[in-house]
Amino acid sequence: MTDTTTPRVALVTGGSGGIGKAVVEKLAADGFAVAVHYAGNQAKADALVEQITANGGRAIAVGGDVADEIAMKEAFDATETAFGGIDVVVNTAGIMLLSPIATLDFAELDRMHRTNIRGAFVVSQLAANRLRAGGALINFSTSVTRTQFPTYGAYVASKAAVESITMILARELRGKDITVNAVAPGPTATPLFLNGKDDAAIQGLAKAVPLERLGQPEDIAETVAFLAGPARWVNGQVIFTNGGLA
């Protein structure tokens, strides 16, 4: 059974901006002690830590390339040293580089493979070995694995791999009381999504959703908080958090 006498602890990769930042803020508001992971912008992570601690929460910043197993082991170590253990790992870290398959730059494919696939393996392996009973690993995919928009081929290939890693790890952790799920956001107003798109493209994607708006990072954070806390019977699933985008 989950120990409810001590605060739960979460490590959020890519936690200094975008969806990751909203996840950190939501989990901190829910009473989690949070390790805010960053890859390159320590100042943003430190500012978020200061914001959380100023509001009475507990947080630290941890750095490292998610695809580097030694750097990420150190991030897990630092989290355990600060808070005594880890209950939830949320792996939001990822990059998105768009191109038609016919003209794909293979250097960009390799970059996405390293961060999105190797990074998912590194973080998932560490989580599998370090999460406490009652814990949760939450990886990130994308709704474009189903909508199949042009130019997303290489990115979607990397995220489809993340879904497969998630589904299989959930079954490999039988008996450990650890859930493993993936969240697949739809169009969400983050710098990663908005970069390189003009207003017409953005409005077109917003109108494609039955709710006729882009998602906000807070919308995605609500789903993560559900999987991180009360959703103990949701396991081995991909949750499409996309406003009904078909």
Rank of each mutant, 00 (worst) to 15 (best):
D3T: 07
P7L: 10
V9R: 05
T13D: 07
I19W: 00
G20K: 02
A22K: 10
V23L: 07
D30M: 02
V36K: 01
H37L: 00
A39N: 14
A39S: 15
Q42F: 07
A43L: 10
K44S: 15
A45F: 05
A45G: 10
E50F: 00
A54D: 13
A59S: 05
I60Y: 04
A61R: 04
G64T: 00
D68Q: 03
E69C: 04
I70C: 02
I70N: 13
A71E: 13
E74Q: 14
G84T: 07
V90M: 05
N91R: 09
I95K: 11
S99E: 14
P100T: 08
I101Y: 00
T103R: 13
L104T: 09
L109S: 12
R111Q: 15
H113E: 12
G119L: 05
F121Q: 13
F121G: 08
V122I: 13
S124D: 11
S124C: 12
A128Q: 10
R130Y: 06
L131V: 12
L131W: 10
R132P: 02
G135K: 06
L137S: 09
S143Q: 15
V144A: 14
R146S: 12
A154P: 00
Y155S: 01
A157E: 00
A157P: 02
S158A: 11
E163Q: 13
I165S: 07
I165L: 15
I168N: 13
A170I: 08
R171H: 11
K176E: 09
K176I: 01
D177F: 08
I178H: 02
T188Y: 01
T190S: 05
P191R: 07
F193T: 04
L194D: 01
L194Y: 01
A200K: 15
A201K: 13
A208Y: 02
G215I: 05
P217A: 02
A228P: 01
A228T: 04
R232W: 08
W233H: 12
Q237L: 04
N242Y: 01
G243Q: 00
G244W: 03
L245Q: 06
